[in-house]
Amino acid sequence: MSSEPAQQETKPLRLFFREAVARAVREEMARDPKVLLMGQDVGSFGGSYREFDGVYGEFGPDRVRDTPVAEPASVGIAAGVAAAGFRPLTVITYMDFLMLGFDALINYAAKLRYKSAGKLTAPMVVKTTAGAQGQGVAHSQCIEAWLISVPGLAVVAPSTPADAYGLMKSALRHDGPVVYMDHKKLFPTPGNLDREEHVVPFGKAAIRQEGTDVTLTCHSYMVRVALQAAEALAEEGISVEVIDLRSLAPLDIDTLVASVEKTGKLLTLEEGQVTCGVGVEVATRIFEAVGYRPWKRLGALPAPVSSNPVLEAECIPDAEQVIESIRVLVRG
């Protein structure tokens, strides 16, 4: 049973985020009988965001398991079954709740290959959802920067349905633990996909818009904010190169370095905290290669993300702030 409606072959394949995820999961589950799906509401309900529509019906209760509200055990069981030879995809509804699963993910799965001298691995994917959308201080956080400092852990963050599909496929084939993060505000966005099966490899950024005056790095929902800002800046004659990191660990250093060598300036943009943030890592890695360049960073203000719409909007960067930061960078 397909979760996607029939579409004419002559038209581009256009899908919602959730449909792209479901397509990747269904293909990988069909390809590899070791792939499992588990988490809250992933069974007949089809996932909190309908991102697993049809998966339970196709693959059944052994391979698709609803878990109770028990994040530590859900992540731990995924790590254990991965160590025992399976490839579980475990779903943590909000990234904030992933903190409850850190022991198994960070202390066990990310270290298993190392501590067993390569004899054991934990090929597991934790799929979770980040970002501010009115849900308050413990349902809005972007904590990917915490995760990219963990040796042995891969972290990916798509901004389009095509990358959601391609990165999920890569994640389910990766021989170690992966955190795959979606953003709530991206779910309403459809996007085109290649009809042919394909993967998006880890460690490959995407240049969303070429430019010459400044490099703007971003990921997840902030890619849309960046593109909006870049469009406005083009009208002022400022050419922005927008790089969607896609894979935060590992980072695509070559693409980042080449861009900053060309533009000579850098703005790093993220929805999470700037302190020890993704942007700090991106900038540092670039400057280690090419030497220091003018750089600004944008991210959440150092405050919790409130469900209060006024405070939430104030906390999270928007296109206006991106535009202003780039004006300062480019024009001084």
């Binding site: 069981i77 790590a79 254990g80 079954v81 025992a84 022991d103 198994a104 066990y108």
Partner: peptide, 12 residues
Amino acid sequence: GNITIAAGVALG
């Protein structure tokens, strides 16, 4: 934490 891991091995 080890108890959750064991349950995963048992699931396998």
